[in-house]
């Protein structure tokens, strides 16, 4: 597969549409015009680079990176996986940023009003950069489900938010990871903005007993797929394109 070709067209049937009235905030924040099909120019086929040297030793350890007086409350877990592209090739050097609520479902944020307690030892953010095989891992506590103002009684399933940088701005992605076996997933208005059930299941991390650390932490495996480049098998393109 080529390193040069433009990216495979985004399959928008697997992504949520902009306007999803059961997720009420989308109603006023969704463009009504059709997107203008631009395709990729060099501006979209390039993207920023983040070096491993920018990471601190605790950036991927949410159990320790904010702790003041001890470990945070909650079930200790390891989340690990790979970042791949649509051609099933690893994406090395991808910056992942993740954020989450604490074990009670409470975010450390001024605007957060849920009555579950703040955990003095939990900040809720971390980051990692994938290795040559596209692998990443981080340690955290399992976030709790939380209620949110949408319907009169809507709850989010336990989830971890992810922001992902691949090699090109065309690959930029923000998504969420859910946990295998959680019945809350299927009643969530935000999950259900995704029209395709198989696409939703791609966001459900699998419990991995083999990677679980005995007497320490359960493990969940979460692979992320970014857009891949088209192979340019017989295309003659002008220099610089």
């Amino acid at each position: 597969m080529s390193d040069q070709g433009p990216f495979i067209q985004r399959n928008r049937d697997r992504h949520p549409p902009a306007y999803t009235p059961t997720y009420k905030t989308s109603v006023l924040r969704s463009p009504q015009h059709a997107l203008l099909s631009l395709g990729n120019t060099i501006s979209e086929m390039t993207g920023p680079v983040f070096g491993h040297n920018m990471l601190g030793p605790l950036d991927n350890d949410l159990i320790r990176n904010f702790a003041q007086t001890g470990d945070p409350i909650g079930q200790r877990i390891v989340v690990y996986g790979r970042v791949l592209d649509e051609n099933a090739r690893p994406v090395p050097g991808a910056l992942l940023e993740f954020w989450q609520a604490n074990a009670g479902g409470r975010y450390r944020h001024k605007k957060e009003t849920y009555l579950a307690a703040i955990d003095p030892n939990f900040g809720g953010c971390g980051r990692a950069i994938t290795d040559q095989e596209g692998r990443y891992a981080f340690r955290t506590i399992k976030p709790g489900a939380y209620p949110w103002p949408n319907g009169v009684n809507d709850w989010r399933p336990a989830h971890i938010h992810f922001s992902v940088f691949g090699h090109a701005f065309a690959q930029r992605l923000v998504t969420q990871m859910y946990f295998e076996g959680d019945p809350m997933i299927w009643q969530c208005p935000i999950v259900r903005t995704i029209p395709d059930k198989a696409a939703i299941e791609q966001l459900v991390a699998a419990l991995d007993r083999n990677a679980t650390l005995p007497m320490d932490a359960m493990a969940y495996k979460f692979d992320i797929v970014l857009r891949g480049r088209r192979s340019t098998l017989f295309e003659n393109r002008m220099e610089g394109n």
Binding site: A88, H109, C125, R127, I190, T193, I194
Partner: peptide
């Protein structure tokens, strides 16, 4: 081929992950 992971909203607390210092989560980086 694999399929691109679907997008989900960044939500109201995106800055916890992207700009933690700005939302007063200091000391992590």
């Amino acid at each position: 081929y694999l399929k691109e992971s679907p997008s989900q909203t960044a939500g109201p607390y995106v800055h916890i992950g992207t700009n933690p210092n700005w939302v007063e989560i200091t000391g992590v980086w």
